[in-house]
Nucleic acid binder design. Structure first.
Lengths: 127, 127
DNA sequence: AAAGTATATAAGCATATACTTATATACTTA
DNA sequence: TAAGTATATAAGTATATGCTTATATACTTT
């Protein structure tokens, strides 16, 4: 089973890698949480930058990574770009994480919980 | 609220950061999954290196990161070190992830699911 | 005791990451 | 139209990451 072009990676391990990489930065975690905790459904780059105490390009960079990982999505209104959650994709992300931990817990015999869905991690060598 | 020394970081965002960083590498994901899928409860560094097609130092490095993140744990038998899952910590890790996604889904109004537990992400500026 | 095996770590190197300042582009307002 | 605002991106820089080869240390076997 060959590795597919990484920009169109279809195997679960690569999807999880991208997701965990995106969330593996405290500023991006805080961005996500603050958006979840705020009074608004969506937020612009400059508002997020100010809220986080980051420069505009830093905020833009982080938001782009979160969008690429399909944690966030964006809509354009005039010269404003608003970021909000990618609701459908987040459900899929959670399912993948649940599946992974399901596998781990079976091994630990701690929780008698079957992996959900029919996803399978594609096992392949990196080389 | 001050940032605590990062090696003794007690706030949730830093714990999640470390966890996601550890899993945000495809080789480490595969290490975890292969350990979960194998016939054995534990595996030595050289076995894992061979299984993954990595050099011994690379495997050791990855296993160390997974141990530090409390995904794996290790026991020493003679000159062998065996790695296996850190069962108790994994449950805690999953709870933290469930909490985070619970916060996100409330915002999305997709799933009427309360965040579990009384963990709260500590909101603070990085600077 | 010498040789063999397992492992963590050091050091080196290429690349990635996360920040900065600068700037081009798109849009809005005066 | 000119000026102002929002944003993504370029380029630069310091640091982190993930690999390599080399090696010291701990243990086992001969």
């Amino acid at each position: 089973m060959l590795r597919i072009n990484s920009s169109k990676c279809t195997d679960l391990s690569c999807e999880l890698e991208e997701l965990f990489k995106a969330l593996g930065n405290v500023n991006r975690l805080l961005i996500v949480y603050r958006l979840a905790s705020g009074e608004v459904e969506q937020i612009s780059v400059t508002e997020m930058a100010r809220m986080m105490g980051l420069t505009q390009p830093a905020a833009s960079q982080h938001l782009k990574i979160l969008k690429t990982a399909r944690i966030l999505d964006s809509t354009k209104h005039g010269n404003h770009i608003y970021y909000t959650f990618n609701e459908d994709a987040l459900i899929h992300h959670k399912e993948k994480i649940d599946f992974l931990f399901g596998c781990l817990f079976i091994k630990c015999h701690k929780i008698d919980e079957k992996p959900k869905g029919n996803n399978r991690l594609i096992i392949q060598s990196k080389k």
